[in-house]
Amino acid sequence: MELRQPSSLAELDGADGLALAGGTDLVPLLRDGLVEAETLVDVRAVVPRGIDGGTIGAGTTLAELEVDPESPQALREACALAASPQLRSMGTIGGNLLQATRCWYWRLKYPCFLHGGSTCHARQGAHREHAIFGNEHCASAHPSDPAAALLSLGTTLRTDRRELPLADLYRLPTEDDRDVTALEPGELILELEVPKPEASTYLKAMDRTRFTFALVGVAAARFGSETKIALAGVAPIPWLLESADDLDRATPLPGTAYKVDLARALVRRALDALA
């Protein structure tokens, strides 16, 4: 394995390789052989870091966002409740949006749908942490708290190639394409443009008080008369709700039905909090 450490975007130009930011997700994935790379590119000197009004460098750590008074409350709360203090001070927001699923079958290399196989082992198997939406092929639950917050906030990404709404970064895996993000190979997220809401919040239900992924995370942001709701831990990708009634159309597995109740309670609370 080779590690490149370019000092600017220009220096990076054209070279291929896998971006390494905080490494909190990528390093374990590489060790387990879940991701393979000839070349790693340490992008920390390339990707902007820091917060300037509504613009957040993709290299900003969750720890920095957690305490930034300028960031919307939903984002701060989502960061504060994510992972652990050490992981938050290592992990970047760009990497967080792109972290791989925590589905235990996937992490243990079952040849499942998301790995290119034909079945979802979670569906027949142990799946209490899995999805209630978008789970036709793959029932994994997206692990990112900040992604739900940023989605509710209507965030736009700027990459080294284009701008795209955060909602378009994610896609459900299909027979033809098992990817859950729409980034091109080598494409780098540089900045996030985060609109300022009038009010926002993030609520997270988990198995212990801290340092564990969301069973259900609910982000809500109010812009004028409109309130947007996005969920973590309920679908293979961060999940936008049109309204609370969407929860009636959930498609839970036997072991995830409780997540619908959980989401209902948290959505109600989030909306109450913003009212």
Binding site: R102, R107, L108, Q124, G125, A126, D207, T209, R210, T212
Partner: peptide, 29 residues
Amino acid sequence: LSEARLVDPVSGKVLTQTLDAYKLPTIAD
């Protein structure tokens, strides 16, 4: 409240081998 070793009911393989999946109490609990 939080700890449980989970096994795949089909294959009998242990799924919660790691400390992110197997949830010990933290200081906050």
